[in-house]
């Protein structure tokens, strides 16, 4: 249960940071509706953000392992 709570907290933080960054990048002048081009940009942006998260996570995990096996 505690594990689930943490996974939820973690997903919420990802959602929050991703929403903010992709909105700032993709919706330069907010109009009367979210236009198609803006929605396409947000879709690309969230895909790239999640991929980046995975790349960063892998790089960090590798680094921690290298250090642990050195010492």
């Amino acid at each position: 249960q505690m594990r689930q709570q943490m996974a939820v907290a973690h997903a919420q933080e990802l959602l929050q940071k991703m929403s903010e960054r992709c909105f700032v990048k993709c919706v330069v002048k907010p109009g009367t509706s979210l236009e198609l081009s803006e929605r396409q940009c947000v879709a690309k942006c969230m895909d790239r953000y999640m991929e980046s998260w995975n790349v960063v996570s892998r790089a960090y995990a590798n680094r921690i392992q290298t250090y642990s096996s050195d010492s």
Partner: peptide, 8 residues
């Protein structure tokens, strides 16, 4: 639009 975008 921010709320739309988050919803999307």
């Amino acid at each position: 639009r921010f709320l739309d975008s988050t919803h999307f």
